[in-house]
Nucleic acid binder design. Structure first.
Length: 355
DNA sequence: AAGTCGGGGTA
DNA sequence: TACCCAGACTT
């Protein structure tokens, strides 16, 4: 009897052990001819970029509740989409999500294209997402490569070429490995294997369905793969944030960030620019208007993709009416605050000011 | 090819 | 602390 193929080994493991993502329909629960909702597959794949399943889950359900179809999302105000995305990070994903929904609604009659090439022309859909959507939503044969796949395959085949130079080889190997039947389940199985068994540190080789065919199984080498270029250390930037509070209502003064760049289009409290040579002694010069600003004891520490941030937080209590209304600023009462498009660093600043 | 974009989980 | 990332876009 011929030995089982690698794909068969993995799919058997997947059918027995793998946790299934809540929004992906299991093959056995699928009615004949029924396909998973491409809109939901697309939405989940965009959210899962650089983000864990645990972090995505509640956001995914909220988006499905607010906008059940791609047409609903296309018709939604971008402002509402940014609010619903607030806290998930990488906010350009939310802007591109909205653009993509509009394109699908207007140029594709509300239906997602089924082939990888066309999918990749849509905003926010790159090589990974295009392959994932084509194979999971449309059962197309595609080589899905994300960080998990890179880790699993560099170990399985002992690929010691550093990333990103190894990407073409990994893509080709994934293409050869992917079976004609159930290609989408296979892709999800490899990613699931990477998330649960073939982990970056201390992989559980003893539990791996590929242990007998893996080039580095249970060896010291496994943890060192995939090889990557050494990463440079993050600099620290400094700045000040100013929280104005209306004592009568508890409302705080907010404003909108510029549409592009860091935290583009998101809501913030007034503050200085952030720089490595920020003069903390002269922070009050950056206040949005003169007031009795009091420095809070605890500063805000936050880490972005490529720098650390330390923010001095100032608070002033003043009546909202005493301030000349600016077109770009608004007061937000405590019950409205949770719905504002506030990124995590701004929620930290508000906590430091209000607690 | 390198830089820009958050945030949470681990050790 | 300091790592690890379930990528895509811009320059």
């Amino acid at each position: 009897m011929a030995s089982a193929s690698p794909a068969r080994l993995l799919l058997d493991w997947y059918d027995r052990h793998a946790r299934r993502l809540p929004w992906r329909v299991a093959p056995e629960d699928r009615k004949l001819g029924e396909i998973p909702d491409p809109y939901r597959i697309w939405l989940s794949e965009i959210m899962l970029q650089q983000t864990t399943v645990a972090a995505v889950k509640d956001y995914f359900e909220k988006f499905c509740r607010l906008w059940p179809t791609v047409e609903d999302l296309a018709a939604a105000p971008e402002e509402d989409v940014m609010k619903a995305w607030a806290g998930l990070g990488y906010y350009s994903r939310a802007r591109n999500l909205k653009k993509c929904a509009e394109t699908v609604a207007s140029d594709h009659a509300g239906r997602f294209p089924e082939d990888e090439k066309t999918l990749q022309t849509l905003p926010g859909i790159g090589p990974y997402s295009a392959a994932a959507i084509a194979t999971i939503a449309f059962d197309r044969h595609a080589a899905v490569v994300d960080g998990n796949v890179e880790r699993v395959l560099t170990r399985l085949f002992r690929i010691e070429t550093p990333l990103p130079d190894a990407k073409p080889q990994i893509k080709a190997q994934m293409g050869e490995l992917t079976p004609e039947k159930r290609p989408g389940d296979f892709a999800q199985a490899v990613m699931d294997l990477g998330a649960t068994i073939c982990t970056p540190k201390r992989p559980a080789c003893a539990l791996c369905p590929w242990r007998d065919i893996c080039a580095v199984q249970s060896s010291e080498l496994a943890e060192t793969l995939p090889r990557k270029a050494p990463k440079k250390q993050k600099p620290t930037r400094f700045g000040a944030a100013f929280v104005a509070v209306d004592p009568a209502t508890g409302a705080v003064l907010l404003r909108r960030r510029p549409p592009k760049g860091l935290l583009g289009g998101m809501t913030e409290v007034p503050g200085s620019d952030w720089s490595e040579d920020f003069d903390t002694e002269a922070a009050l010069e950056h206040a949005p208007f003169p007031a009795d600003w009091r420095k809070r004891m605890n500063e805000v520490k936050h880490t972005f993709t490529h720098f650390h941030l330390r923010l001095a937080v100032y608070r002033a209590d003043l009546a909202a009416e005493s301030l000349n209304a600016s077109a770009r600023d608004w007061w937000s009462t405590p019950d409205m605050l949770s719905e504002e498009a506030l990124p995590t660093v701004m929620r930290k600043a508000l906590t430091a000011a209000l607690d």
